[in-house]
Protein backbone atom coordinates (compact mmCIF):
# COMPACT_ATOMS: atom_id res chain seq x y z
CA UNK A 1 0.00 0.00 0.00
CA UNK A 2 1.73 3.22 -1.03
CA UNK A 3 -0.78 5.90 -0.07
CA UNK A 4 -0.57 7.05 3.55
CA UNK A 5 -4.21 8.12 3.39
CA UNK A 6 -5.24 4.62 2.40
CA UNK A 7 -3.14 3.10 5.17
CA UNK A 8 -4.86 5.31 7.70
CA UNK A 9 -8.26 4.42 6.27
CA UNK A 10 -7.73 0.68 6.10
CA UNK A 11 -6.09 -0.01 9.45
CA UNK A 12 -5.53 -3.64 10.37
CA UNK A 13 -8.06 -3.39 13.16
CA UNK A 14 -10.76 -2.31 10.71
CA UNK A 15 -9.96 -5.06 8.25
CA UNK A 16 -9.90 -7.56 11.09
CA UNK A 17 -13.39 -6.55 12.25
CA UNK A 18 -14.59 -6.63 8.62
CA UNK A 19 -13.35 -10.20 8.21
CA UNK A 20 -14.45 -11.38 11.65
CA UNK A 21 -17.34 -9.21 12.71
CA UNK A 22 -18.28 -9.44 16.40
CA UNK A 23 -21.86 -9.91 17.55
CA UNK A 24 -23.11 -10.51 14.05
CA UNK A 25 -26.16 -12.72 14.59
CA UNK A 26 -29.86 -12.45 15.23
CA UNK A 27 -30.79 -11.50 18.78
CA UNK A 28 -33.95 -13.41 19.59
CA UNK A 29 -34.58 -11.59 22.86
CA UNK A 30 -34.32 -8.12 21.32
CA UNK A 31 -36.48 -5.34 22.69
CA UNK A 32 -35.73 -2.93 19.88
CA UNK A 33 -34.56 -3.28 16.31
CA UNK A 34 -33.57 -0.54 13.90
CA UNK A 35 -33.13 -1.08 10.19
CA UNK A 36 -30.73 1.42 8.68
CA UNK A 37 -29.68 1.55 5.03
CA UNK A 38 -27.63 3.82 2.87
CA UNK A 39 -29.56 3.90 -0.40
CA UNK A 40 -26.66 5.45 -2.29
CA UNK A 41 -24.45 2.43 -1.86
CA UNK A 42 -26.66 -0.31 -0.46
CA UNK A 43 -24.98 -0.67 2.94
CA UNK A 44 -27.56 -2.11 5.22
CA UNK A 45 -27.78 -3.22 8.85
CA UNK A 46 -30.35 -4.23 11.39
CA UNK A 47 -29.20 -3.32 14.86
CA UNK A 48 -30.85 -5.34 17.59
CA UNK A 49 -30.70 -4.44 21.27
CA UNK A 50 -32.05 -5.99 24.43
CA UNK A 51 -32.58 -3.08 26.74
CA UNK A 52 -33.18 -3.68 30.43
CA UNK A 53 -34.02 -0.64 32.51
CA UNK A 54 -31.26 1.90 32.13
CA UNK A 55 -28.80 -0.24 30.22
CA UNK A 56 -28.24 -2.35 27.11
CA UNK A 57 -28.05 -5.97 28.18
CA UNK A 58 -27.13 -7.25 24.72
CA UNK A 59 -26.37 -5.80 21.29
CA UNK A 60 -26.19 -7.68 17.99
CA UNK A 61 -26.47 -6.84 14.33
CA UNK A 62 -27.02 -8.40 10.94
CA UNK A 63 -26.41 -6.86 7.56
CA UNK A 64 -23.98 -6.34 4.73
CA UNK A 65 -21.90 -3.56 3.32
CA UNK A 66 -18.44 -2.15 2.93
CA UNK A 67 -15.54 -2.70 5.31
CA UNK A 68 -16.05 0.67 6.99
CA UNK A 69 -19.74 0.26 7.73
CA UNK A 70 -19.40 -3.33 8.91
CA UNK A 71 -16.27 -2.77 11.01
CA UNK A 72 -17.78 0.30 12.65
CA UNK A 73 -20.94 -1.55 13.68
CA UNK A 74 -18.94 -4.54 14.86
CA UNK A 75 -16.69 -2.34 17.03
CA UNK A 76 -19.67 -0.43 18.28
CA UNK A 77 -21.48 -3.55 19.48
CA UNK A 78 -18.44 -4.64 21.51
CA UNK A 79 -18.82 -1.39 23.44
CA UNK A 80 -22.54 -1.73 23.99
CA UNK A 81 -22.76 -4.97 25.95
CA UNK A 82 -23.94 -3.92 29.39
CA UNK A 83 -23.51 -0.21 28.64
CA UNK A 84 -25.73 2.37 30.33
CA UNK A 85 -28.09 4.09 27.88
CA UNK A 86 -26.62 7.47 28.70
CA UNK A 87 -23.12 6.17 28.00
CA UNK A 88 -24.17 4.58 24.74
CA UNK A 89 -25.73 7.87 23.69
CA UNK A 90 -22.61 9.79 24.66
CA UNK A 91 -20.45 7.33 22.69
CA UNK A 92 -22.58 7.79 19.59
CA UNK A 93 -22.35 11.57 19.86
CA UNK A 94 -18.60 11.53 20.44
CA UNK A 95 -18.02 9.20 17.52
CA UNK A 96 -20.17 11.36 15.26
CA UNK A 97 -18.12 14.40 16.27
CA UNK A 98 -14.92 12.59 15.38
CA UNK A 99 -16.36 11.68 11.97
CA UNK A 100 -17.17 15.31 11.32
CA UNK A 101 -13.54 16.22 11.87
CA UNK A 102 -13.62 17.32 15.52
CA UNK A 103 -9.99 16.91 16.59
CA UNK A 104 -10.72 16.98 20.30
CA UNK A 105 -13.17 14.12 19.90
CA UNK A 106 -10.54 12.24 17.91
CA UNK A 107 -8.16 12.50 20.90
CA UNK A 108 -10.80 11.23 23.31
CA UNK A 109 -9.51 7.95 24.76
CA UNK A 110 -13.06 6.96 25.73
CA UNK A 111 -13.64 6.09 22.06
CA UNK A 112 -11.15 3.25 22.45
CA UNK A 113 -10.72 1.06 19.36
CA UNK A 114 -13.23 3.20 17.51
CA UNK A 115 -10.46 5.77 17.08
CA UNK A 116 -9.08 3.47 14.38
CA UNK A 117 -11.90 4.85 12.23
CA UNK A 118 -10.67 8.42 12.47
CA UNK A 119 -9.10 8.17 8.99
CA UNK A 120 -12.58 7.88 7.50
CA UNK A 121 -13.21 11.53 8.33
CA UNK A 122 -10.73 12.41 5.56
CA UNK A 123 -12.96 10.64 3.01
CA UNK A 124 -16.16 12.71 2.95
CA UNK A 125 -18.13 10.23 0.84
CA UNK A 126 -17.37 7.40 3.28
CA UNK A 127 -18.39 9.14 6.52
CA UNK A 128 -21.96 7.95 6.10
CA UNK A 129 -20.66 4.35 5.99
CA UNK A 130 -18.95 4.75 9.37
CA UNK A 131 -21.99 6.39 10.91
CA UNK A 132 -24.52 3.79 9.79
CA UNK A 133 -24.36 1.76 13.02
CA UNK A 134 -24.25 4.76 15.32
CA UNK A 135 -27.16 6.35 13.52
CA UNK A 136 -29.09 3.15 14.14
CA UNK A 137 -28.05 3.23 17.79
CA UNK A 138 -29.23 6.80 18.24
CA UNK A 139 -32.48 5.93 16.51
CA UNK A 140 -32.94 2.93 18.85
CA UNK A 141 -32.25 5.02 21.93
CA UNK A 142 -34.70 7.67 20.81
CA UNK A 143 -37.33 5.02 20.35
CA UNK A 144 -36.61 3.47 23.76
CA UNK A 145 -36.39 6.75 25.61
CA UNK A 146 -39.83 7.52 24.29
CA UNK A 147 -41.00 4.22 25.76
CA UNK A 148 -39.30 4.58 29.16
CA UNK A 149 -40.25 8.19 29.65
CA UNK A 150 -37.19 10.29 28.86
CA UNK A 151 -34.79 8.59 31.21
CA UNK A 152 -31.84 10.12 29.38
CA UNK A 153 -32.67 13.66 30.36
Amino acid sequence: MNSPQLSSLYQQLILEHYRNPRNKEELDAKTVEIHMANPVCGDEIRLQLRIEGDHIAEAKFVGSGCSISQAAVSMMTTRLQGAKLVDADALAKRFTEMMHGDEIAAQDKSLGDLRALEGVSKFPVRIKCALLGFDALQEALKKEVGDVGGELH
Binding site: S3, Q5, L6, L9, Y10, Y18, R19, V40, C41, G42, D43, G65, C66, S67, I68, F123, V125, R126, C129
Partner: peptide, 27 residues
Amino acid sequence: GDAHPHDISTILDMDGVAVRAGHHCAQ
Protein backbone atom coordinates in the same frame (compact mmCIF):
# COMPACT_ATOMS: atom_id res chain seq x y z
CA GLY B 1 -12.59 -11.26 -3.50
CA ASP B 2 -13.86 -10.07 -0.14
CA ALA B 3 -13.41 -6.40 -0.95
CA HIS B 4 -16.66 -4.53 -1.00
CA PRO B 5 -17.26 -2.45 -4.17
CA HIS B 6 -17.16 0.80 -2.13
CA ASP B 7 -13.78 -0.07 -0.85
CA ILE B 8 -12.66 -0.93 -4.38
CA SER B 9 -13.93 2.44 -5.58
CA THR B 10 -12.23 4.38 -2.77
CA ILE B 11 -8.90 2.65 -3.36
CA LEU B 12 -9.11 3.24 -7.11
CA ASP B 13 -10.08 6.86 -6.55
CA MET B 14 -6.89 7.38 -4.55
CA ASP B 15 -5.16 6.29 -7.74
CA GLY B 16 -7.14 8.76 -9.86
CA VAL B 17 -9.34 6.02 -11.33
CA ALA B 18 -13.09 6.77 -11.25
CA VAL B 19 -15.42 3.77 -11.25
CA ARG B 20 -18.90 3.42 -9.88
CA ALA B 21 -19.72 1.19 -6.94
CA GLY B 22 -23.23 0.27 -5.91
CA HIS B 23 -26.38 -1.23 -7.34
CA HIS B 24 -26.36 0.99 -10.45
CA CYS B 25 -30.10 1.64 -10.13
CA ALA B 26 -30.62 -2.02 -10.96
CA GLN B 27 -31.41 -3.69 -7.67
